[in-house]
C-alpha cells in the first residue's frame, strides 16, 4: 500500500486531477514545454508566470526499471520485492513517471512496452497515477 498524499499548494492540481482519474502535467505556455515534477518556475525560461496544467492522453512506454528489495518506506516493505519502472509519456518522452506496474510479474518487465495510466487509491484515499502494460 502506498503512503497517503497530503496535497500542497504546488501539487494540488496534479492530485485533484488524479482523484478525477485524469493525468495532468505542468506546462509552460510560453515555452510550450512540459515539466515534471512540477516546480514554481519553468525550468527553461525560469518564469513562473506562464505555468498551467495540461491534461495528458494517459499513454506511455516503459523506459527502464529496477526491482526494489530493500525499501525505506515502511508501508511498502510487506510488498517487497516489487518493480519500480520509469514510464516515458507519449505526449513527451522527456516526461517521466514512476510505476509499480500493477499486474506485471516482478523482474519480468517488458522494457519498451506500451502502458496506459490507471489510478489506484493510496493509504489515505488519494488516487495515484499508476501504469499498466497494454496487452
Amino acid at each position: 500500500m502506498k503512503q497517503g498524499v497530503i496535497p500542497d499548494e504546488l501539487t494540488a492540481p496534479f492530485w485533484s486531477a488524479a482523484n478525477e482519474s485524469k493525468l495532468v502535467i505542468q506546462n509552460c505556455s510560453r515555452c510550450d514545454r512540459l515539466q515534471h515534477p512540477p516546480a514554481q518556475d519553468c525550468g527553461q525560461c525560469k518564469s513562473g508566470e506562464n505555468l498551467e496544467w495540461k491534461e495528458m492522453n494517459g499513454t506511455g512506454h516503459i523506459y527502464n526499471y529496477g526491482v526494489v528489495h530493500d525499501c525505506p518506506i515502511r508501508l511498502l516493505q510487506d510488498d517487497q520485492p516489487f518493480n519500480v519502472a520509469v514510464i516515458m509519456l507519449d505526449d513527451d518522452p522527456g516526461i517521466q513517471m514512476y510505476s509499480h506496474l500493477p499486474g506485471t510479474p516482478v523482474d519480468d518487465v517488458p522494457v519498451g512496452a506500451a502502458v496506459e495510466v490507471v489510478f489506484e487509491k493510496s493509504a489515505n484515499g488519494q488516487k495515484i497515477p499508476e501504469w499498466k502494460v497494454v496487452n
Binding site: 504546488l10 526494489v68 530493500d70 493510496s122
Partner: peptide, 19 residues
C-alpha cells in the same frame, strides 16, 4: 518514510519506495 501520508511534492518522487 515511516509516516502514513506525506506531502504532495515529495510524493511525486518518493511514493514508489525507490532506495
Amino acid at each position: 518514510n515511516a509516516q502514513d501520508a506525506i506531502g504532495g511534492t515529495s510524493a511525486i518522487r518518493s511514493l514508489w519506495g525507490a532506495p
